[in-house]
Design a binder for these strands. Structure first.
Lengths: 142, 142
DNA sequence: CAAGAAAGTTAGTTGAAACTAACTTTCTTT
DNA sequence: AAAGAAAGTTAGTTTCAACTAACTTTCTTG
């Protein structure tokens, strides 16, 4: 069996951000990750070295990093989950700042079954604009 | 203005469990809280002393504790949020263990606006059994 | 190409919240 | 009421993931 993963919320945040940086800038340097996560460079260096030993990325000191296959697969899952939750909350008419904040916090605690259910729900809701209008109205009233 | 609260996830878990114990057994002793949260008695003693200094409960060494008005208000909010999330996931047809686990993790990260939206959505969904059936079916297929 | 700036690293510290071990207080049972 | 059990407390340790300060490497630019 493949090696057991015990990824913490912090590890997930790093992987998610690294993938995002790679997708947008083509690379992810320590300084970029630090700015993006709003933590110090030293903390990033530490975590990256740990992710390297855990086989989630390959790091060459002072030079750069690349996600391994395992790391990329994990990062893609995390990103997909983040996007799905964002889409769902967006559908409910919430503000972008609220969505960002809440997704950032809760994403690490959503299991695959729950994610599947929210995915299905989101799809169905997209075909029910009248229902969504009611939900949004009722939300704003309180 | 009332004193600012900076309640961590841990604090919220304690308050939630304490209120639950008080509601079910009539009191909450250190040993009960420890068993219920699956942590050591020593950890509970520490946290309770902290919650006392923070004014969320009144503690008499070796004797017992009671929530203050502030503590109870907070605990009630936390409990309500927990219940709402549980109801919502229940509606989607998820298993009780999954629900318990996910709610336990995500409850601390849901802001009031998001909670209101989920509340409204839950209410509307309860009137849409056909839609819910579709969601459940689609969830199980994947 | 040398010097200063930017980026990266190391070492040691901090804070939250758990832990164990040893001790004290309270409760229970005879 | 005394002894043993149960409950509670204290002190000190551990882990995670941040931090700062000091240092090294790499990049940039005059």
């Amino acid at each position: 069996m493949p090696t057991e993963r015990h990824t913490s919320a912090a590890v997930e945040d790093y992987l998610e951000r690294i993938l995002e940086l790679i997708n947008t800038k083509g690379y992810a340097r320590v300084v970029d990750i630090a700015q993006s996560l709003k933590i110090s460079q030293a903390s990033v260096t530490n975590m990256i070295q740990r992710l390297d030993t855990e086989g989630l990325l390959k790091y060459e000191k002072y030079r750069g990093l690349a996600l391994t296959t395992a790391g990329e697969a994990l990062a893609l899952n995390i990103t997909r989950r983040h996007q799905l939750l964002t889409d769902f909350l967006k559908l409910l008419g919430l503000d972008d700042e609220v969505i960002y904040h809440d997704v950032e916090g809760m994403e690490h605690h959503i299991s695959p079954p729950t994610l599947r259910a929210i995915e299905a729900l989101t799809q169905q809701l997209q075909r029910q604009p009248a229902l969504l209008a009611k939900v949004r109205k009722q939300t704003d009233e309180n």
